Structure formats: C-alpha cells, structure tokens
Simulated assay, not measured.
Amino acid sequence: MHESIALEVSDVIIDKRYNSAFKATKLQNYLDGTGIEHLNIIGVTINVVVKVAFKLGDQAAVVEQESFS
C-alpha cells in the first residue's frame, strides 16, 4: 500500500495474486460475512472481477471514468 493512502481502522486489506480479486482470496467470505452484495469496481483488469462477481451472485458496478480495461 502506498504511503500516501491513509488507512482507516475499519479498512480491510485482502491480498491477491491473480487478476481476479476473488480467485484464491477471502474476499467472497468477507462479503458474505458482512452482508455486502453490491460492489463498485475500479481498476485496470476489471473484466475478470466483474464476471466472477456476477457468477457468485454479487451486483457489480463499474466506475467508468476510473477504468480502462
């Protein structure tokens, strides 16, 4: 995490190794456990994340101005 980003105590960091935030991470468990069902997706390779989110039953919105995938 870059030093210019100020983390809040309530922030959750989920490390990932693949181009999907869902593959081999605890993201879906976190979403299910907290009742989060709607995601705003911002990033570079968002197509994979959005496809998996829908497949898992989550709603996903892409913030177009911030994405270039």
Rank of each mutant, 00 (worst) to 15 (best):
Met1Phe: 15
Glu3Asn: 06
Ile5Leu: 10
Ile5Tyr: 09
Ala6Met: 07
Leu7Ser: 13
Val9Ala: 14
Ser10Phe: 03
Asp11Ile: 03
Ile13Glu: 06
Ile14Thr: 00
Ile14Ala: 04
Asp15Pro: 15
Asp15Trp: 14
Arg17Trp: 04
Arg17Phe: 03
Arg17Ile: 15
Asn19Gly: 02
Asn19Ser: 02
Asn19Leu: 12
Ser20Tyr: 01
Ala21Ile: 08
Phe22Asn: 05
Lys23Glu: 14
Ala24Ser: 03
Ala24Thr: 05
Ala24Asn: 05
Thr25Met: 02
Lys26Gly: 13
Lys26Val: 07
Leu27Gly: 00
Asn29Arg: 07
Asn29Val: 08
Asn29Gly: 03
Asp32Thr: 01
Thr34Tyr: 08
Gly35Pro: 08
Gly35Arg: 00
Gly35Trp: 06
Ile36His: 10
Ile36Ser: 13
Ile36Val: 12
Ile36Asn: 11
Ile36Cys: 15
Glu37Ala: 14
Glu37Cys: 09
His38Val: 10
Leu39Asp: 06
Asn40Met: 14
Ile41Cys: 09
Ile41Gly: 08
Val44Gln: 14
Val44Leu: 08
Ile46Asn: 06
Asn47Met: 13
Asn47Ser: 12
Val48Ile: 12
Val49Pro: 04
Val49Arg: 01
Ala53Phe: 07
Phe54Lys: 03
Phe54Pro: 08
Lys55His: 01
Leu56Cys: 09
Leu56Val: 00
Gly57Met: 12
Gln59Tyr: 05
Ala60Met: 10
Ala60Lys: 00
Ala61Pro: 02
Val62Phe: 07
Val63Gly: 02
Val63Pro: 12
Glu64Pro: 05
Glu64Ser: 06
Glu64Asp: 07
Glu64Phe: 09
Gln65Cys: 14
Glu66Arg: 13
Ser67Cys: 14
Phe68Ala: 09
Phe68His: 12
Ser69Thr: 13
